[in-house]
Design a protein around this nucleic acid. Structure first.
Length: 208
DNA sequence: TGTCCGATTGGT
DNA sequence: CCAATCGGACAG
Protein backbone atom coordinates (compact mmCIF):
# COMPACT_ATOMS: atom_id res chain seq x y z
CA UNK A 1 0.00 0.00 0.00
CA UNK A 2 1.28 3.48 -0.91
CA UNK A 3 0.97 6.73 1.03
CA UNK A 4 -2.37 7.61 2.64
CA UNK A 5 -4.25 10.32 0.75
CA UNK A 6 -4.04 13.63 2.58
CA UNK A 7 -6.55 16.44 2.92
CA UNK A 8 -5.24 18.18 -0.18
CA UNK A 9 -6.23 15.27 -2.40
CA UNK A 10 -9.88 15.82 -1.56
CA UNK A 11 -9.78 19.60 -1.96
CA UNK A 12 -10.73 19.51 -5.63
CA UNK A 13 -13.83 19.30 -7.77
CA UNK A 14 -15.75 16.02 -7.39
CA UNK A 15 -15.78 15.46 -11.16
CA UNK A 16 -12.01 15.69 -11.15
CA UNK A 17 -11.58 13.59 -8.00
CA UNK A 18 -13.93 10.75 -8.99
CA UNK A 19 -11.78 9.23 -11.79
CA UNK A 20 -8.61 9.84 -9.77
CA UNK A 21 -10.02 7.61 -7.03
CA UNK A 22 -10.01 4.58 -9.34
CA UNK A 23 -7.12 2.33 -8.32
CA UNK A 24 -6.90 3.77 -4.81
CA UNK A 25 -7.16 1.42 -1.84
CA UNK A 26 -10.07 1.93 0.53
CA UNK A 27 -9.08 0.67 3.99
CA UNK A 28 -11.26 -0.04 7.00
CA UNK A 29 -9.80 -0.86 10.40
CA UNK A 30 -12.03 -2.26 13.16
CA UNK A 31 -11.57 -4.50 16.19
CA UNK A 32 -12.32 -7.42 13.88
CA UNK A 33 -9.33 -6.59 11.71
CA UNK A 34 -8.35 -4.84 8.49
CA UNK A 35 -10.46 -5.00 5.36
CA UNK A 36 -9.51 -3.21 2.17
CA UNK A 37 -10.34 -3.06 -1.52
CA UNK A 38 -9.25 -1.27 -4.66
CA UNK A 39 -11.77 1.26 -5.92
CA UNK A 40 -13.07 0.25 -9.37
CA UNK A 41 -16.20 2.43 -9.69
CA UNK A 42 -17.15 5.94 -8.52
CA UNK A 43 -19.70 8.66 -9.15
CA UNK A 44 -19.33 12.43 -8.74
CA UNK A 45 -22.05 14.49 -7.05
CA UNK A 46 -21.20 18.06 -7.67
CA UNK A 47 -23.25 20.16 -5.25
CA UNK A 48 -25.94 22.86 -5.26
CA UNK A 49 -26.53 22.94 -9.04
CA UNK A 50 -26.51 19.15 -9.49
CA UNK A 51 -30.13 18.08 -9.17
CA UNK A 52 -29.09 14.45 -8.62
CA UNK A 53 -27.10 15.39 -5.49
CA UNK A 54 -28.41 15.35 -1.94
CA UNK A 55 -26.88 18.81 -1.58
CA UNK A 56 -28.94 20.17 -4.49
CA UNK A 57 -30.14 23.64 -3.62
CA UNK A 58 -27.27 24.32 -1.28
CA UNK A 59 -29.05 24.13 2.07
CA UNK A 60 -27.58 21.76 4.66
CA UNK A 61 -29.92 19.32 6.37
CA UNK A 62 -29.47 16.84 9.18
CA UNK A 63 -28.48 14.17 6.67
CA UNK A 64 -26.15 16.19 4.48
CA UNK A 65 -24.34 18.50 6.91
CA UNK A 66 -20.92 16.78 6.62
CA UNK A 67 -20.90 17.51 2.90
CA UNK A 68 -20.93 21.20 3.79
CA UNK A 69 -17.87 20.81 6.00
CA UNK A 70 -14.19 20.44 5.06
CA UNK A 71 -13.14 17.88 2.42
CA UNK A 72 -11.63 14.50 3.26
CA UNK A 73 -14.46 13.30 5.49
CA UNK A 74 -16.90 10.40 5.08
CA UNK A 75 -20.48 11.16 4.09
CA UNK A 76 -22.43 7.99 4.86
CA UNK A 77 -26.17 7.82 4.36
CA UNK A 78 -28.68 5.01 4.68
CA UNK A 79 -31.00 4.09 1.86
CA UNK A 80 -34.10 1.93 1.58
CA UNK A 81 -34.00 1.41 5.30
CA UNK A 82 -31.42 -1.35 4.97
CA UNK A 83 -28.29 -0.26 3.12
CA UNK A 84 -25.53 2.30 3.59
CA UNK A 85 -23.60 4.26 0.98
CA UNK A 86 -20.13 5.77 1.45
CA UNK A 87 -18.94 9.03 -0.09
CA UNK A 88 -15.73 11.00 0.17
CA UNK A 89 -16.45 14.70 0.67
CA UNK A 90 -14.55 16.82 -1.88
CA UNK A 91 -14.27 20.47 -2.89
CA UNK A 92 -13.60 23.47 -0.69
CA UNK A 93 -15.34 24.12 2.61
CA UNK A 94 -18.91 25.20 2.00
CA UNK A 95 -18.86 23.49 -1.40
CA UNK A 96 -21.09 20.47 -0.73
CA UNK A 97 -19.61 17.94 -3.14
CA UNK A 98 -18.92 14.23 -2.77
CA UNK A 99 -17.74 11.16 -4.63
CA UNK A 100 -19.80 8.00 -4.12
CA UNK A 101 -17.65 4.88 -3.83
CA UNK A 102 -19.64 2.32 -5.83
CA UNK A 103 -17.48 -0.79 -6.07
CA UNK A 104 -14.21 -2.35 -4.94
CA UNK A 105 -12.01 -5.25 -5.87
CA UNK A 106 -11.41 -7.01 -2.53
CA UNK A 107 -7.72 -6.94 -1.60
CA UNK A 108 -7.34 -7.54 2.14
CA UNK A 109 -9.53 -9.24 4.76
CA UNK A 110 -11.55 -11.32 2.30
CA UNK A 111 -12.75 -13.76 4.96
CA UNK A 112 -13.90 -10.91 7.18
CA UNK A 113 -15.78 -9.40 4.26
CA UNK A 114 -17.32 -12.76 3.42
CA UNK A 115 -18.49 -13.22 7.00
CA UNK A 116 -20.09 -9.78 7.04
CA UNK A 117 -21.72 -10.28 3.64
CA UNK A 118 -22.79 -13.87 3.98
CA UNK A 119 -21.37 -14.76 0.56
CA UNK A 120 -18.04 -16.19 -0.58
CA UNK A 121 -17.63 -15.18 -4.23
CA UNK A 122 -15.10 -12.30 -4.25
CA UNK A 123 -17.01 -10.64 -7.08
CA UNK A 124 -20.09 -10.45 -4.87
CA UNK A 125 -18.36 -8.94 -1.84
CA UNK A 126 -18.01 -5.29 -2.87
CA UNK A 127 -19.69 -4.93 -6.30
CA UNK A 128 -22.11 -2.18 -5.28
CA UNK A 129 -22.27 0.78 -2.89
CA UNK A 130 -24.39 -1.04 -0.33
CA UNK A 131 -22.39 -4.25 -0.62
CA UNK A 132 -19.03 -2.60 0.01
CA UNK A 133 -20.34 -0.80 3.08
CA UNK A 134 -21.58 -4.10 4.48
CA UNK A 135 -18.29 -5.82 3.63
CA UNK A 136 -16.26 -3.09 5.34
CA UNK A 137 -18.55 -2.65 8.33
CA UNK A 138 -19.46 0.92 7.41
CA UNK A 139 -22.77 2.32 8.61
CA UNK A 140 -24.15 5.73 9.42
CA UNK A 141 -22.15 5.46 12.65
CA UNK A 142 -19.12 6.31 10.50
CA UNK A 143 -20.74 9.41 9.02
CA UNK A 144 -18.36 12.35 9.43
CA UNK A 145 -15.23 10.25 10.01
CA UNK A 146 -12.00 11.96 8.99
CA UNK A 147 -10.61 10.04 6.01
CA UNK A 148 -7.07 11.01 6.99
CA UNK A 149 -7.55 9.07 10.26
CA UNK A 150 -6.96 5.46 11.27
CA UNK A 151 -10.40 3.83 11.03
CA UNK A 152 -11.31 4.61 7.44
CA UNK A 153 -8.85 5.97 4.90
CA UNK A 154 -7.65 5.82 1.31
CA UNK A 155 -4.16 5.09 0.06
CA UNK A 156 -2.26 5.03 -3.21
CA UNK A 157 -2.32 1.55 -4.73
CA UNK A 158 -2.48 1.15 -8.53
CA UNK A 159 -2.32 3.49 -11.52
CA UNK A 160 -4.41 3.05 -14.67
CA UNK A 161 -4.10 4.74 -18.02
CA UNK A 162 -7.05 6.84 -19.29
CA UNK A 163 -7.71 4.04 -21.80
CA UNK A 164 -8.72 1.76 -18.93
CA UNK A 165 -11.31 4.21 -17.60
CA UNK A 166 -14.91 4.22 -18.85
CA UNK A 167 -17.63 6.77 -18.23
CA UNK A 168 -21.43 6.52 -18.19
CA UNK A 169 -24.45 8.31 -16.76
CA UNK A 170 -24.91 7.83 -13.03
CA UNK A 171 -27.05 4.97 -11.74
CA UNK A 172 -30.61 5.49 -10.46
CA UNK A 173 -30.78 9.24 -10.77
CA UNK A 174 -33.73 9.41 -13.15
CA UNK A 175 -35.39 11.81 -10.73
CA UNK A 176 -32.86 14.42 -11.82
CA UNK A 177 -33.77 16.60 -14.79
CA UNK A 178 -30.88 18.88 -15.70
CA UNK A 179 -27.98 16.67 -14.67
CA UNK A 180 -29.43 13.20 -15.25
CA UNK A 181 -27.31 12.40 -18.29
CA UNK A 182 -23.97 13.81 -17.14
CA UNK A 183 -21.20 11.24 -17.63
CA UNK A 184 -20.12 11.40 -14.02
CA UNK A 185 -19.86 7.68 -13.36
CA UNK A 186 -16.33 6.31 -13.73
CA UNK A 187 -15.27 2.67 -13.73
CA UNK A 188 -12.47 0.39 -14.84
CA UNK A 189 -13.08 -1.20 -18.23
CA UNK A 190 -14.11 -4.88 -18.08
CA UNK A 191 -13.44 -5.16 -14.37
CA UNK A 192 -15.45 -8.05 -12.85
CA UNK A 193 -16.27 -6.14 -9.65
CA UNK A 194 -18.08 -3.19 -11.27
CA UNK A 195 -21.64 -3.03 -9.90
CA UNK A 196 -23.35 -3.49 -13.25
CA UNK A 197 -22.55 -2.83 -16.87
CA UNK A 198 -24.49 0.19 -18.10
CA UNK A 199 -26.37 0.27 -21.40
CA UNK A 200 -24.46 3.29 -22.67
CA UNK A 201 -20.86 3.89 -21.85
CA UNK A 202 -17.63 4.93 -23.49
CA UNK A 203 -13.92 4.60 -22.93
CA UNK A 204 -12.92 7.88 -21.41
CA UNK A 205 -9.85 8.18 -23.62
CA UNK A 206 -12.10 8.34 -26.70
CA UNK A 207 -13.98 11.35 -25.36
CA UNK A 208 -11.07 13.64 -24.58
C1' DT B 1 -47.12 15.06 13.47
C1' DG B 2 -48.04 12.55 8.99
C1' DT B 3 -46.87 11.13 4.55
C1' DC B 4 -43.83 9.83 0.92
C1' DC B 5 -39.82 7.79 -1.02
C1' DG B 6 -35.03 6.48 -2.18
C1' DA B 7 -27.21 7.70 -5.03
C1' DT B 8 -29.89 -0.60 -3.36
C1' DT B 9 -30.14 -5.37 -3.26
C1' DG B 10 -31.62 -10.01 -3.99
C1' DG B 11 -34.97 -13.01 -5.55
C1' DT B 12 -39.03 -13.91 -9.33
C1' DC C 1 -40.05 -6.91 -12.68
C1' DC C 2 -40.92 -6.37 -7.55
C1' DA C 3 -40.79 -6.17 -2.51
C1' DA C 4 -38.12 -5.21 1.71
C1' DT C 5 -37.88 -1.55 5.35
C1' DC C 6 -37.07 2.93 7.77
C1' DG C 7 -34.67 7.66 8.50
C1' DG C 8 -35.15 11.93 6.87
C1' DA C 9 -37.11 15.63 4.03
C1' DC C 10 -40.81 18.31 3.69
C1' DA C 11 -45.65 19.78 3.86
C1' DG C 12 -49.08 21.39 6.95
Amino acid sequence: MGPVLGRDFYARDAVEAAPLLLGKLLCRRTEEGLAAGMIVETEAYRGPLDDAAHSFGGRPTERTRVMFGPPGHAYVFSIYGMHSCLNAVTGGEGQPQAVLIRALEPVEGLSLMAARRGVQDPRQLCSGPGKLCQALGVTRAQNGLDLTGEELFLAEYRLFSPDAVCVSPRVNVDYAVEYRDRLWRFFLKDHPCVSRVPRRYAARGTLE
